[in-house]
Design a protein around this nucleic acid. Structure first.
Lengths: 253, 253
DNA sequence: TACAATTGTGTCTAATCTACACTATAGATT
DNA sequence: AATCTATAGTGTAGATTAGACACAATTGTA
């Protein structure tokens, strides 16, 4: 937790620079070694976990705010970001309220305000990320999606909603592009889909369908080193990929 | 436009009761005589058109705010409402800013603030609505979707985004339930789908598919009075309808 | 009474989805 | 080096679904 002095400084700064009552929270998805990962921060002292977030500068577009916040946490710029929901129940930040209310009078206290938070999800290449904690956290780290600890405030709900949205969007966007490294094998891509959808897919039908979209380029190279037959390496064909995005992907899984 | 005095009173009241920087705008869809309708308001004096909207009370959940706002405009309570996007560009309310900036000093002036607006779309039974103007408008009326006048601020974008969202949601929810009256014929329902999707559908295949969902009940009665063969009347089977909602509707149009 | 327009139902074909079989190959085992 | 094992690449038969269209039934009207 911040000292009283730190808190006071923070509040003065926040009040001056940020829009009141509005925050942004981000669910950053990465994919590594066959499992989905989410970026979480751990609170100083209490050790509680929460999602990366922040506020909107008074004259800043909200997408830019989300981008700025994530750049600070991941080192990455121009991340694939998708707004998905606003969480606006008056009690959603009650925990925060109780925690900070005795430290500063309410008039000056930024954290006892009510906040609506705009949820964004981000898809990133796991390997590109350099997790960095913020002012309130001791650590920022990837966490296995199947094994997320209880999160502060309504962040568990935010995460769940992001995941539900991602599943739906999977029907309309080839989401793999943002989550996979430049080169990958078909089984790796399939694993990603299986993780997001939380169900097994048929290897052969998956391959056919994926290739049917016409957005993958097969390299002549194979991924050697595995214990068995070496799979081909693929990459996204950016030109066709963009065209397909505009067309829209039809059909559900 | 409001007089200076009215504006001042409004601003004092707003400042006291509403969350700063946040507004709600609603796209209310209705369906009547084979065409989609949208509820719009006409500004006093200038005659410009805009979408029904309002602000969030300091201790009010945002869904409740949207509901309250729509109750004032339509007379209806517990409307089917769906949050779909936040519009947050800093310049989005520049028109408002320019219009009101000379009437009151910026410190007191509610309307020169930056507002993020949360977009909701609503689906209602056209016949149930009693359009009522708000404080800033001379009239509140249904407007043909194919023939919407230019709207104030970014409301044209908001409407377009709502419509795009509605099209996607059509794959996941039997949206007809909220837009159709209690009893309707299959051709009427088809017309609704055709209007939303903006394309012709095959009469026979539509019927088969619709009935395949198992959410319609056929009445023994026919709709007489038309110049030709009388079609059956249908209504939604609420029990199956709810079950289907949970299951999720698969497949795209 | 015949006609025009529309609705209810059926059916054929092509496309797609699903499940599974077979072959190929890299590394491990012997 | 020969064989084994697990996984990858490709193909195919059957079921399901989507799309196009034909035909009979029924309503009010000429």
């Amino acid at each position: 937790m911040l000292t009283k002095k730190e808190l006071k400084e923070y509040c003065i700064d926040a009040r001056e620079n940020y829009l009141a009552h509005i925050s942004i929270d981000c669910v950053v998805f990465g994919f590594h070694e066959g499992t989905m990962k989410v970026l979480v921060l751990q609170m100083k002292d209490e050790g509680e976990w929460y999602l990366p977030g922040g506020f909107v500068l008074k004259n800043e577009p909200i997408e830019m705010a989300a981008n700025r916040i994530l750049k600070e946490r991941t080192g990455l710029d121009e991340i694939f970001l998708q707004q998905f929901h606003v969480f606006g129940h008056p009690d959603r930040s009650k925990e925060h309220f109780d925690m900070y209310k005795d430290m500063l009078p309410e008039k000056e206290n930024w954290f006892t305000n009510r906040f609506l938070t705009i949820g964004y999800y981000a898809l990133v290449d796991f390997c590109d990320v350099n997790p960095a904690p913020d002012q309130f956290s001791t650590s920022c780290a990837w966490c296995d999606l199947n094994n997320v600890p209880p999160l502060k405030l309504d962040h568990t709900l935010i995460l769940k909603t992001a995941l539900d949205t991602l599943r739906v969007h999977l029907n309309y966007q080839p989401i793999g592009y943002n989550l996979m490294p430049g080169e990958f094998t078909m089984p790796e891509l399939q694993k990603l889909y299986e993780t997001i959808l939380d169900k097994k897919l048929d290897r052969r039908n998956f391959q056919r369908r994926m290739l049917g979209f016409g957005i993958l380029k097969r390299s002549e190279q194979l991924r050697k080193g595995g214990a068995h037959k070496a799979p081909y390496l693929y990459s996204f064909d950016l030109e066709n990929y963009r065209a397909a995005l505009i067309e829209g992907f039809k059909g559900s899984w």
